[in-house]
Write a protein that binds this DNA or RNA. Structure first.
Lengths: 259, 259
DNA sequence: CGTGCCAGGTGCCAT
DNA sequence: ATGGCACTTGGCACG
């Protein structure tokens, strides 16, 4: 299923890697290498000990021993080439659109993992922006009393307003939602929609930024631009979500998975 | 340096992982697992074959056999816990600020890689936004004839204008740079700086968006907001960069590394 | 610390 | 394919 090999020669390494890649196996190479990259930008990494992951779809990820982020990578690549040259094992990964190339030069390979992993698991994310939007869509009173939501993801100009509704005085309301913290960027986004809507319809809508919290400069900009903001409580939303799940009969399933 | 172990029992696995983590070794666990995450959001991943990377600084990355992106992760974590429970090896990674927890439940472990990697290599990125800004700072004629740049990263309001200068008619110019493609977001960013500058000084500055290319809606917004844009050629900038490196005497070093 | 902003961002979905 | 936008964004620099 998963095999580990300490190769005795570069030639053997090349063969093992080539075979593994051809068979679309997960392959991880541990060794001392340098890495060059050229494409949208360009980078150089001088010698050190790293590991290179080649995934079953050809994605390549090069990790240093520290840190979350890979130092170099290549998404599911069209061409992977492995050769020996000048006493080094050279791995080349070429992607078109955008045209980008990663070169890994191994001066030494300590070992190679390879094998096929089977993963049919289902991944579900909760409480992302999409879900928050849906909860607010179904419970507009969480934003404001008497608010009626008309549309989700309403196209305005070239963009999309998260929610669009009408308040109790029949004034149109454009709502921009941020999942965590709303900064000035979000205010500008909202302002843009409000301006475009006003230009197009001649009616000045309200603009409400909805988020669990706001940077000080966001609030400053909100006031300056004549917009509004509403703080929401994620815990409360979570309760509404669970209530909704009971209504939709999916909570039992959720709890079952929880077990 | 790097060791691979096929464990015969959960207990043995727990011991190996615990030791490796305690010794700050790079550890990779191959096995069948489910993963839960709770923090800024929450997620569930049902059973499948994956590998879990524990880096030497405690960062945790969980990869499925396909794709560039990890399915779950934890940046350099404060607490990593490994125990056996209900016939499973349970790995818990806890991070504070923000408070987030990842749980990995292994029903089966195929093998464990662990060992210390030494990586003192130097990583250099070329032609990122910072470098482009520096080249334009030193060669303002690439943007416009007669333009004099006064300041890099000029604080305006709560943000920073990439470049600030004076044109040949002594009109102040605020410049926003994008490395690849400028979209409406960048226009709004620039517009924000122009507005704030005008409010503060009473002088209406020009605003120029500089990028290799522009989305159509960006150009539309530029016109609507009375801003300007200037297309730059990265190839040309690259030549200026190399010319600068010759002047600075670093090209030889660059070529030496290239060899 | 938070705030701002870039990133070879990546990924997802829309037209 | 291009565009718009969220992301458990992560990462860095600066006040």
């Amino acid at each position: 299923m998963i095999e580990y090999t300490k190769c005795s020669s570069n030639n053997e390494c090349v063969e093992i890697i080539k075979n593994a890649v051809r068979n679309k196996e997960l392959t991880i190479i541990f060794g001392k290498c340098t890495v060059d990259y050229q494409g949208r930008a360009a980078s150089k990494l001088t010698e050190g000990e790293r590991f290179v992951i080649i995934k079953q779809d050809g994605a390549i990820i090069i990790h240093r021993p520290i840190g979350y982020s890979p130092v170099n990578w290549q998404p599911s690549t069209s061409v992977i080439e492995v050769v020996e040259r000048d006493d080094r094992v050279v791995l080349t990964a070429i992607r078109n659109k955008p045209r980008e190339i990663v070169w890994v030069y191994f001066s030494e390979i300590y070992g190679i993992i390879h094998g096929k992993l089977v993963d049919q698991g289902e991944f579900v994310m909760y409480m992302d922006e999409h879900e928050i939007r849906d909860i607010l869509y179904e419970n507009p009173e969480l934003i404001e009393k008497g608010l009626r939501i008309i549309e989700k993801e309403k196209p305005i100009g070239n963009g999309y307003a998260d929610l669009f509704g009408i308040d109790k005085n029949n004034v149109p309301v454009i709502i921009e939602i941020k999942r965590i913290s709303a900064s000035r960027d979000a205010v500008l986004q909202l302002f843009n929609y409000v301006k475009i809507y006003e230009n197009k319809t001649g009616v000045k809508p309200r603009g409400i930024l909805v988020a669990p919290n706001f940077t000080s400069s966001a609030i400053e900009s909100i006031h300056k631009l004549g917009l509004e903001y509403k703080e929401i409580n994620l815990q409360l939303l979570w309760k509404y979500k669970k209530a909704r799940e009971i209504r939709h009969g999916t909570l039992l399933e959720f709890l079952a998975k929880k077990k």
